[in-house]
Design a protein around this nucleic acid. Structure first.
Length: 463
RNA sequence: UCCUGGGUAGCUCAGUCGGUAGAGCAGGUGACUGUUAAUCACCCUGUCGGGGGUUCGAAUCCCUCCCCGGGAGCCA
C-alpha cells in the first residue's frame, strides 16, 4: 500500500525504497526506448518529481504516451535513487491514473518560458508556472511571518473595517460602496442623496486602517492590522494597485525612533524568514528574474539601515554634482529620482528618511519642536522606492486641532479621533507597509501585478 | 493622467524603398535516445490590434480609438 506524499516532502525526506503516491500536474513528458520520463509538479515546491513510466504499464500507449503539459495525474510507485544527474530521486511508476487531460493544441501554457504580460492574461492558469507558483508560496510564507513577528512581540491583531464612512485621510481617491440604483440615483441639491443609501450615508472602501487601529492602540496597547486596502487613483505604474494589502502596526507609548527600530527589525525578520523557508524560490528568482536578488537580500540583513533627516537629504542632493530633472528645494517633496539616487547610489542599502516638512504631510503626524517639521519617516528600498511610511502621531489635543484646521479640514468630522486625545491620550506611533511592495522587494519581481494573485488596476480587474 | 516604445502564427519576434508575410519555439507525424530547455527530419498554423483615409497596390504612409511595456505624477 503506497502512502500519499506531497512532492516537497518526497524531495526533502527522500524515502528511497518506499511505496509512494503523488498527485499533480504533468510539466513535460520525454519518451525513451521502452519507457517515458514524466515531470510532475504538485505546487508544493519549485522542483518537479521525475517519474519513470515503463511501457509494460497498463494503458501505456493509450494514456501515458498521450500525457502533455497540464494533464493532472495520480501516480503510485517505488521511490528510487536516480542513476542520472539532475535529480537525487525518481519515482518508478507502478500505476498511472489520469484525472484530467489538457488538450495540447488549446492549453495556453507550454513547457517553455512565457512573458509575464502574457501570463497576466491567463490569471486562472498562471499559478501553474514555476515563477508565479513560487510567488504564491512566498506570499503565503510572508503572510504567516507578518503575524508571527507581531504575535511573538505581544501585538494584538485588529480587524479594521473594509467598508468605512470616515474619509479621514482626505487625500486618496476612494471607491464608493452603494446599493443605489445607478440608473436612477436619488438626488438632493444636485448631488447623490446618500441618506437613502444602504448605510444612510456615503460609504467607501478603506484607504487605510490606521485611524481605526489607533482606537484599539489606545485601549489594548500595541496592535496591528493586515488587510486589503483600496485606492481609486488612476496610477499606472509597476508598483501601484487599486486593491492591495497593507500592514499597519500602531504602538502605544512609542516615539519615532522606536517606530523606526520596529520597522527595520520587521523588514529584516521578513527577509530572514523567506530565506529560511523559501530557499528554492529565492534561488529561482535569482536565476531567472533578478540576478542580484540574493546578494541584495544578504546586505539587508548584514547592515543597519541608513538614516538621514529630510533636511540632510536636501543638503546631500543640493551639494552633489548630479543634475536632476526636478528641482531640489527644502519644502518640496522628494521626487523618485532623488530617492533613488540617495538609496541606490549614495547609501546602496535601505534608507530611512525622517522629519519631513509638516506642509507636505498629513495632519495626524506629530509636530516637532521646530514647529516646521513632523516626526515622520519613510523607508526607501533599492529598486522599489518607498516601502514603508510612518510617523509618531500627534497626541496633543490643541496641536491636533490646529493642524486639522491648517489643512483646511473640519474638526467636527474628526470628533471621535479627537476624543482619543481628550481622554487619556498617550504618545504613540506606527507605520504602513505595502505588502505587495515587500513581496516585490523579496522576490525581485519587477511588476507589482505579478505578486498579487488577481491584480486590480485602472481598466483591469480579471475574474 | 502626462511622456515614450510597442501591438505581425498558440508563444517570442523579424519583415529593407509601399508590391500582397517569415524564423525560432510550441503543436502534429516519424526516427533516435537514462532523458532532463532532449536531439534529428517532415508537416500544420495569420482579421499583420479595431475603424477610417492616401494609393493601381498598405504589415509598411496619415488620422483616430483600444490594449500592453518602460518612465513620471500620486502613494504603500
Amino acid at each position: 500500500m503506497s502512502q500519499y506524499f506531497r512532492i516537497a516532502k518526497i524531495l526533502s525526506e527522500q524515502p528511497i525504497g518506499q511505496a509512494v503516491e503523488i498527485k499533480g500536474w504533468i510539466r513535460t513528458r520525454r519518451d525513451s526506448k521502452g519507457f517515458s520520463f514524466l515531470e510532475v509538479n504538485d505546487g508544493s515546491c519549485v522542483a518537479n518529481l521525475q517519474v519513470i513510466a515503463e511501457e509494460n504499464l497498463p494503458r501505456y500507449a493509450d494514456d501515458i504516451l498521450r500525457l502533455t503539459t497540464g494533464c493532472s495525474v495520480r501516480i503510485s510507485g517505488l521511490l528510487a535513487a536516480s542513476p542520472a544527474k539532475g535529480q537525487a530521486v525518481e519515482l518508478k511508476a507502478t500505476e498511472v491514473e489520469v484525472y484530467g487531460w489538457a488538450d495540447p493544441e488549446a492549453y495556453p501554457l507550454q513547457k517553455k518560458r512565457h512573458s509575464f504580460e502574457f501570463l497576466r492574461e491567463i490569471a486562472h492558469l498562471r499559478p501553474r508556472t514555476n515563477s508565479l507558483g513560487a510567488v504564491a508560496r512566498v506570499r503565503s510564507a510572508l503572510s504567516f511571518a507578518v503575524h508571527r513577528f507581531f504575535q511573538e512581540q505581544g501585538f494584538q491583531y485588529i480587524h479594521t473595517p473594509i467598508i468605512t464612512t470616515s474619509d479621514c485621510e482626505g487625500a486618496g481617491e476612494m471607491f464608493t460602496v452603494t446599493t443605489l440604483d445607478l440608473n436612477n440615483v436619488p438626488r438632493k441639491d444636485g448631488r447623490p442623496d446618500f441618506s437613502q443609501d444602504f448605510f444612510g450615508r456615503q460609504a467607501n472602501l478603506t484607504v487605510s486602517g490606521q485611524l481605526e487601529a489607533e482606537i484599539y492602540c489606545l485601549a489594548l496597547g500595541n496592535v496591528y492590522t493586515f488587510g486589503p486596502t483600496f485606492r481609486a487613483e488612476n496610477s499606472n505604474t509597476s508598483r501601484h494597485l487599486a486593491e492591495f494589502w497593507m500592514i499597519e502596526p500602531e504602538m502605544a507609548f512609542c516615539d519615532l525612533s522606536q517606530d523606526m527600530q520596529v520597522a527595520e527589525a520587521f523588514i529584516k525578520y521578513l527577509v530572514q524568514y523567506v530565506l529560511d523557508h523559501c530557499p528554492d524560490e529565492i534561488e529561482l528568482f535569482t536565476n531567472f528574474v533578478d540576478k542580484g536578488l540574493k546578494a541584495r537580500l544578504a546586505t539587508v540583513l548584514e547592515q543597519n539601515f541608513a538614516k538621514i533627516t529630510y533636511t540632510e537629504a536636501i543638503d546631500r542632493l543640493t551639494s552633489c554634482d548630479r543634475t536632476f530633472n526636478f528641482p531640489v528645494a527644502w519644502g518640496a517633496d522628494l521626487q523618485s529620482e532623488h530617492e533613488r539616487y540617495l538609496c541606490e547610489e549614495v547609501f546602496k542599502r535601505p534608507l530611512i528618511v525622517s522629519d519631513y516638512p509638516k506642509s507636505i504631510k498629513p495632519f495626524y503626524m506629530r509636530v516637532n519642536d521646530d514647529n516646521t517639521t513632523v516626526a515622520a519617516m519613510d523607508i526607501l528600498v533599492p529598486g522599489i522606492g518607498e516601502i514603508i511610511g510612518g510617523s509618531q502621531r500627534e497626541e496633543r489635543y490643541d496641536n491636533l486641532v490646529s493642524r486639522i484646521e491648517e489643512m483646511g479640514l473640519n474638526p467636527e468630522e474628526y470628533d471621535w479621533y479627537l476624543d482619543l486625545r481628550r481622554y487619556g491620550t498617550i504618545p504613540h506611533a506606527g507605520f504602513g507597509l505595502g505588502f505587495e511592495r515587500l513581496i516585490q522587494f523579496v522576490s525581485g519581481m519587477a511588476n507589482i501585478r505579478e505578486v498579487i494573485p488577481f491584480p486590480r488596476t485602472p481598466g483591469s480587474a480579471a475574474l
